[in-house]
Design a protein around this nucleic acid. Sequence first.
DNA 1: ACGCGGATCGTTACACTGTAACAGGCAGGG
DNA 2: CCCTGCCTGTTACAGTGTAACGATCCGCGT
Lengths: 175, 175
Amino acid sequence: MDEHGTCGHHGHGQDSHAHGHESHGPARTADLVARAERLAQDLGLQFTTLRRRTLEVVAEEGRPLGAYDIAERLSAPGKRVAAVSVYRALDFLTEHGLVHRIASRNAFVPCEHGHGAGESAVFLICRSCGSVDETISAEIERSLDRTLAQAGFKPASRIVEIEGECGACQGRQGE
Amino acid sequence: MDEHGTCGHHGHGQDSHAHGHESHGPARTADLVARAERLAQDLGLQFTTLRRRTLEVVAEEGRPLGAYDIAERLSAPGKRVAAVSVYRALDFLTEHGLVHRIASRNAFVPCEHGHGAGESAVFLICRSCGSVDETISAEIERSLDRTLAQAGFKPASRIVEIEGECGACQGRQGE
DNA sequence: ACGCGGATCGTTACACTGTAACAGGCAGGG
DNA sequence: CCCTGCCTGTTACAGTGTAACGATCCGCGT
């Protein structure tokens, strides 16, 4: 159930295509942790060990992780971490834009660029390799804002998730 | 936990704003059932009693219903309908575009306009009254298509769900 | 030092969401 | 009639998420 096939993408970065995640690994993780520490410092919040480790686990994995998966990875033979604790840590992390929740998968991914928590992202979820690519398009935001204004609707949070096949997986089709 | 406050909306229907659901009631229900019967006729599918009643229940309610809520409404003192049966009926109904699943709520709403199952809709979910408004914007679709093409991503299904406050609820704020 | 309040975390219990597997029922075709 | 395919009923179970309570830790004012 693992084998996440290193979906390379390629992203000729137009329109602030903010990913470039060959090997989601430790680099991004360190960035995220640093951002979290700065954020906690500035706002007087507590970036506790559990929260840091939760963030690290999510960031190391290159694809969406369920809360129970995270709990499992955080647990050690003598030291079990309950899912409920992970949920609380995830609440904190999502509130401050450090991780995103993928509603269509009940899973979580690290935020792959430094946008504030208020912005909206588009998630491209590959059905073949399971990778998630986070992009931002000002054009989409504009169209959405226009539609929302027409409907007299005041948005609080936006969920845009596209399922399909990523560029890398279209090459090795049916393989 | 009910009290769905009759969120009237109003929708000055620009950009194919396809709702107009003052009182989601029986009218829409009959339309949907008729559509389902035609569809089943044409494709040689079975629009069974369970599927029809499930569709009716979803259509009568003006807001997202969970599968277990539907099961409860379909059950009678001596005749219990299991949730798993409802899920199967919902699978059928969603596959053919008669109802939509709201991923962020794990709930289902009737399709409020006659688009084919392939199209993509934008769901406006009100946090105050719980109503869901389904709209379609060609502009948003174009922006999305452009972004997806740029990313080399081949979409299969699209989820666009905006949470916030609907026009009607903004009037009676905090009330 | 002491107590206090607030936030975090551990633990248990529970509700809700969704699927797998198997058996019975029902219609249509040979 | 039997066989086949689809739908449904039933049970069991896995996965997701929250409520509630207690313990702990930490900073703060006295």
